[in-house]
Design a protein around this nucleic acid. Structure first.
Length: 271
DNA sequence: ATGCGGACCTGTTAGC
DNA sequence: TGCTAACAGGTCCGCA
């Protein structure tokens, strides 16, 4: 479900309710997520104050003096703040209860998400240490993509979705960014020019930034920290539109599968 | 080293 | 209407 804009939207929605608050309870209803939720989590987290909520790639980091709660939403996860008394639903697996009565509640039907605890600098955690740059940082550029891609035969769409290259570009926004940049998704990453990578890097930045502004994309069930959907789905030019006419030129949008993921492009606008 | 397919799960939808 | 298969926003692992 969530790509970078959805995770950032979640962070912004949740943070104001809990920053500075102490954790008074942790309820794990089902700890069988992608990795088992550690048994020690309640002992570690209860009593700690949430200093701030940060994001690295698609990971949310709840920082405390004693350590960091790491949350990943996987494919179907959502995190929102509810008031005490709201009954947990079937897939509400983890609650973090704050002193002010707010509950941070993780819902994740497919259980591809993760809830972990680390006492080290989270940036050095195994899952986070090897991530590529943030796409909205100045270190991420066309030149960077160009250098990273030399000699690679991998399709450019899979290349930009590789979190070791750059974080946060999932299936929806990869399709959209390649359309904006006029690049076909199957082209080998190593054969794309520096000039075209400059355009692609800007496309990635602009589509992610705009999606954050719109509160993310809700196709079926994404909700922000307050339970509200996003609106960026109205701006999608390619994703999910196979067989429909391209907004820009009217050509029929092609659909294919790349790396087992749904892929769409305009055969006229993208080359 | 690179790149690909499979695996992890459940819910929803498309198709017969 | 009901059953089955395919598909879904992620990403780690193992194998070629």
């Amino acid at each position: 479900m969530p790509e970078l804009p959805e995770v950032e939207t979640t962070r912004r929605g949740v943070a104001p309710h809990i920053e500075g608050q102490r954790v008074v309870d942790v309820v794990v209803r089902n700890g069988r997520l992608r990795y088992p939720v550690p048994d020690t989590l309640p002992r570690e987290l209860i009593g700690q104050r949430i200093d701030c909520v940060q994001r690295r790639g698609k990971y949310l980091l709840f920082r405390t003096a004693a350590g960091t709660l790491i949350v990943h939403l996987g494919m179907s996860g959502s995190l929102r703040v509810v008031k005490g008394g709201e009954e947990a639903q079937k897939h509400d697996h983890v609650d973090v209860v704050m002193a002010n009565g707010c509950i941070v509640r993780l819902r994740d039907p497919r259980r591809f998400g993760a809830v972990l605890w680390t006492v080290e600098d989270p940036v050095r955690h195994d899952l986070i240490a090897h991530l590529g740059p943030e796409p909205l940082d100045s270190t991420f550029s066309g030149d960077y993509l160009f250098q990273q891609s030399r000699g690679k035969k991998q399709a450019v769409k899979l290349f930009v979705m590789d979190s070791q290259r750059v974080v946060g570009v999932g299936n929806i926004y990869a399709n959209e960014a390649l359309f904006l940049a006029g690049i076909r998704p199957r082209i080998a990453a190593g054969k794309i020019s520096q000039r075209r990578y400059a355009v692609l890097a800007e496309a990635i930045k602009s589509v992610l930034a705009e999606a954050i502004t719109q509160g993310g994309t809700t196709l079926r069930d994404f909700v922000n920290g307050s339970g509200q959907p996003g609106y960026f789905q109205q701006q999608l030019k390619m994703y999910g539109r196979g067989g429909a006419p391209c907004d820009h030129c009217g050509a029929t949008i092609k659909a294919l599968r790349l790396g087992q993921r749904a892929t769409y492009y305009c055969p006229s606008c993208q080359s």
